[in-house]
Write a protein that binds this DNA or RNA. Structure first.
Length: 407
DNA sequence: AACCTCACG
DNA sequence: ACGTACGTGAGGTTC
């Protein structure tokens, strides 16, 4: 069993080596994409002014709110933020999309502006002129759970979900002549829940190597796996994530956009299916209330001073933290153990390939082609060896010419 | 510097 | 009756 000190101290050197190695980006591709996106953004900006019947700053949430709610009256009881202005988040705008063509344009514009300002235009400026690469800083002492964070730039939130976002991730490339290798844990947090709770049903699902969200749906809805609909699977998947975050019927209902009653039935069905998961969650909260903190498998503590607060809102927030922190934190510990083992093994075998990026459950490498087989073997086996519980961890991997396609 | 919004796991 | 998913970092607006 590892001690926390066997992780944190050696990791300092590992992180330093990753920062020094850095990552290469295709500047030409980003520059071309910047031109294209900027043109599109300017068109959208003009269209927004036309649709609003007046010029306004589309980048100002306050002005967007005034146009949508004061001028166009799209929602009589529009939600306000705590500072008193209209809230215009993506979630709210999506629900108003059918009421006026301006709403969709604002959403489209915001998406493009975000990618341009935060990534496409910002990243080239952070290329080190000496190395020609981007060198992030990994912080080991920032998060409450034991995760790393990444700053200047943050390389743990590079876009991947939208089509435009994918183009940005595609611009992350290996050194000339090298290949990009990526490996990530499959469902690490849910697997830890299965192991911590010893829930028979969940452990079996993972042992069988099945689609965990589909299995969950089949059990909750009492159906055959084959007859699970995409919508049932989606709901089960959201419920699974909810468990990791300390679920509530209200929160789940909001996420799924379903009535609270249905959310409650979903949760009841979930805990009927996985009874030991509920017991595990209860144990986490009980431990927090008794000791004032919770711990990861390796002893990392999260202090929870508000766990016995008389203020229900404050207390329940702590209770969700009590559930989430051991799960998220143990996953963080596990990948750190793997990173140290991989670093040492690379060194021992004299490899020139480099570990360059960590994104919570994923590791990325700039690999000399002749070393690919060795790298693959070391990375996957050390990631899977890093945690030896009843439920095994698995790591999937891929090799490509860029970060996007290495998934 | 606070606030809002949104990118990721 | 209350307000509710967990963890981050960064850019733009506003004051």
């Amino acid at each position: 069993m590892h001690l926390l000190t066997d992780i944190e101290q050696p990791l300092v050197e590992v992180l330093a080596s990753m920062e020094i190695a850095g990552v290469r980006v295709d500047v030409k591709a980003l520059a071309d994409y910047s031109l294209k996106l900027t043109e599109h953004m300017n068109e959208l900006d003009q269209e927004c002014h036309n649709l609003a019947g007046q010029p306004f700053n589309t980048a100002s949430p306050a002005q967007v709110g005034e146009i949508l709610f004061d001028k166009l009256k799209l929602d009589e009881k529009a939600k306000k933020t705590k500072s008193g202005q209209y809230s215009t988040t993506e979630e709210i705008l999506l629900k108003l999309q059918d009421r006026h063509p301006l709403v969709g344009k604002i959403l489209e514009l915001r998406g493009i502006r975000k990618l341009l300002s935060t990534y496409v235009n910002a990243l080239p400026a952070l290329i080190n002129p000496t190395t020609g690469r981007i060198h992030t800083t990994y912080n080991q002492t920032v998060t409450a759970t034991g995760r790393l964070s990444s700053t200047n730039p943050n390389l743990q939130n590079i876009p991947v979900r939208s089509d435009d976002g994918k183009e940005i991730r595609r611009a992350f490339i290996p050194a000339t002549g090298n290949v990009f290798f990526s490996a990530d844990y499959s469902q690490i947090e849910l697997r830890l829940v299965a192991d911590f709770s010893h829930d028979e049903t969940m452990m079996q699902a993972f042992a069988h190597g099945d689609d965990i969200h589909a299995i969950t749906a089949a059990k909750i809805y009492h159906q055959d796996l084959a007859s699970v609909t995409p919508d049932q699977r989606r709901k089960a998947k959201t419920a699974n994530f909810g468990i990791l975050y300390g679920i509530s019927a209200f929160g789940l209902a909001g996420r799924l956009n379903i009535p609270r009653g249905e959310a409650k039935m979903l949760i009841d069905g979930y805990f009927n299916t996985f009874p030991q998961v509920r017991q595990y969650i209860d144990r986490s909260v009980a431990q927090a209330k008794e000791k004032g903190y919770v711990t990861t498998l390796y002893g990392r503590r999260r202090m929870l001073p508000d766990i016995n607060s008389r203020n229900a809102v404050v207390r329940q927030f702590s209770e969700r933290n009590a559930v989430n922190a051991p799960i998220q934190g143990t996953a963080a510990d596990v990948i750190k153990i793997a990173m140290i083992a991989i670093y040492r093994q690379f060194k021992q075998e004299g490899l020139q390939s480099r570990m360059i990026l960590q994104v919570h459950d994923e590791l990325n490498f700039d690999v000399v082609p002749g070393e690919l087989e060795q790298v693959q073997k070391i990375v996957v086996s050390e990631m899977e060896k890093a945690y030896q519980g009843k439920v095994k961890l698995t790591a999937s991997h891929a090799t490509a010419t860029n970060w996007l396609d290495a998934h």
